[in-house]
Design a protein around this nucleic acid. Structure first.
Lengths: 216, 216, 216, 216
DNA sequence: GCATAAACGAGACGGTACGTCGCGTCTTCGA
DNA sequence: TCGAAGACGCGACGTACCGTCTCGTTTATGC
């Protein structure tokens, strides 16, 4: 119907190399593993990727944006296993997340770009779009599955449902990150079981009181 | 008999200036507010403090260590208000913590040093000692107060009590940080009430099930 | 067939700026005049030349090498005037040399780089190639002219001729430098006339005895 | 005959340590040998001498003054050997001087302080007094000895004698320094013989023409 | 089929901050 | 009063990256 820009570039001149993009992102992850965020340099990434610095700057505005793109894909590998119960499902995904946070490229990059984003609103938005909000699917999927199983009641108010989902997400993601990167304790089966017990207990308690009696 | 702390320096040579220390830490906080972590320069801090760069390097190994010391004092200002109930106490301290995370020097510094610490074990230890572990007092104090009020049962096993306190701390600190710095949503009264409800509900539920039947 | 010198750079990348070179060397001489060798700073030279410090370090290994290049051109301005007799020619060139040694950039630079070269063989070689040996042309030209005039006999042994030329050069350059920079006395017409008389007398005496009876 | 200042300090307080002075000068020479002028630091000298930096600054104004004092004594070791003829005497002292210029502390220090002195008149004076002029005794002694032997006629005009002695000194010192440190050729027996021949020939020729007919 | 126009590698460029070193001064204590 | 020890303000060092620029080269079209 209309001429879309994508299928054929329609722009004159040499098109950008797609291989360069993947090579750069791979090189970025490799450099993160070896050097960590603060010692990673764009010149080094370019050299690893076999690419000129200019090529890199043509595609990304800076180190932060590049790293966000480089690690975003890692977080998309998370998935919600079907272990038969809501508690088991949560425990499974939390363990996956903890494993991800043991990978050096993920742990060094995640905190660093969040730190940068405290003074850079577009970057914060990019992080949310590329990394964080994409994983809320896990919460939504977990709830839907629990409701199918009858473990959780249906939530009539969609707005309240969204608010609760956000809260759950903050609690899970925040607690696991804090445990893994700040407290430094292990995120092992025992910790996950105790955490999940608190979380689910809280959810059920809140579901009971939240509906009928908000202000007793 | 009298254990003297340090009546005479006992070290030869000119002693280090105590004023320089405070001036440097103040200057560091001011620079963090104006420039943020990534644009903060040790040379700039030295200039603000009216101090030579070498003086600064004589006392701190690098930017990270300096910033940890500079912001640690901010976190010590947190205190547990006595609002009459455990829920209200928690809500109060969480709001304080959220207010702290709105301060630009705290938000930009905290995530950044945690990011650095992912590749620097001594730094991680320093963060724990100077900032994080010191605030666990709030959790312990809150529980003690709640037990005095009869809101929580006494915990016979001290080891389990410590584990639970750590877990609570990770959940609270992690969730608030994630909400404030990653999700970007407001940490307002409504959010705090809902969060506290989940947390307390979870605690009570876990306390019931945890004691009698660990492995059903 | 035609050996082209360098029609195309053949090297990839942006070529070095030729203007930068001349600006740097000029700035170096200006800084030598104002500050002298020991207070001359590469950063200051870069600033005067409107050039980044890195550009300077890309081209020269250090202060000494830069200064050698900067002052070498001054010495190339020396020339042998034709005043009609060997004595007059020598007096003329010695006065020129003395005038050069009154220029602050030359006097401060020459001794300093020689001092550095006492522990730096490549630097000594650079000084010889760029400054010292180039001026031996004056001795050779003076002798040739004197031989044309019949003031000096032809020297059959070319090796002995070269040795003598080196000796003459050391005597002239050394005596003038010592007079001007160490003793501190004026290198005026009177001194030059007396010095030339000794030198030429010695040359003629040596020429007579040297030929027939080397080892009596 | 009354109270001289030296035998007892008469000044209140602790007198300065004489050992410190000699230790500092020795340490300076040792540091010159190892490091050369440009890498010699006063802090290093103080450490080698087992002395505090302040002690050093109390006695010398800076690096140049210290080094002048440290190497001056080396030049005092030169002496005019009695080899039976003026030519042989000159050859002997020139060889001694050349040997001195092979010592690393002498060669690096001499040119460096001369370079500094081009912009520092008090330093130039200090060099002259402590090092250069003291060695003119060699010229004077050589001439006196030659006159005793009848090799040289008596010089009636003492002012002209002084001027000639200065000239001889500039020629000898300048030529040897230039040969040894700039040209880089060996100052061996052959070179010394040829140099002496030119010098003495010039002296005799100048003595003949200079007296009766200045302007023929 | 051949000009066009963009992307590409290479690397020099003006900057900024780095962390270190030496200077010369000062402040403290002990001899 | 001097001396040792060492912290201090200062300023230059030489290096590393930054992000931009200017080259010559390559590579897909579209005239």
């Amino acid at each position: 119907m209309c001429s879309r820009s994508r299928p054929k570039p329609l722009r004159p001149g040499r098109p950008r190399s797609a291989e360069a993009d993947t090579a750069i992102l791979e090189a970025t992850r490799a450099a993160l593993v070896e050097l960590g965020w603060s010692k990673l340099t764009l010149g080094d990434v370019a050299a690893r990727a076999g690419v000129a610095k200019t090529t890199l700057y043509r595609r990304w505005a800076g180190k932060s944006e590049l790293v966000v793109d480089a690690v975003a894909v890692l977080f998309d590998e998370l998935e919600l296993p079907d272990r038969g119960s809501l508690a088991a499902d949560i425990e499974g995904v939390v363990l996956q997340f903890a494993a991800l946070l043991q990978r050096p490229e993920a742990r060094t990059a995640l905190m660093a770009v969040v730190a940068e984003s405290t003074r850079d609103e577009p970057l914060r938005e990019r992080i949310r779009v590329s990394i964080v909000d994409r994983q809320k699917r896990l919460v939504l999927e977990g709830r839907a599955r629990a409701q199918d199983r009858g473990e959780l009641p249906a939530e009539p108010d969609p707005e309240a449902a969204a608010r609760t989902a956000d809260l759950i997400f903050d609690v899970i993601a925040g607690a696991v990150v804090h445990r893994a990167l700040v407290s430094g304790g292990p995120v092992d089966e025992d910790w996950v079981r105790r955490f999940t017990a608190v979380l689910l207990g809280g959810l059920r308690a809140a579901a009971q009181t939240d509906g009928p009696t908000r202000n007793p």
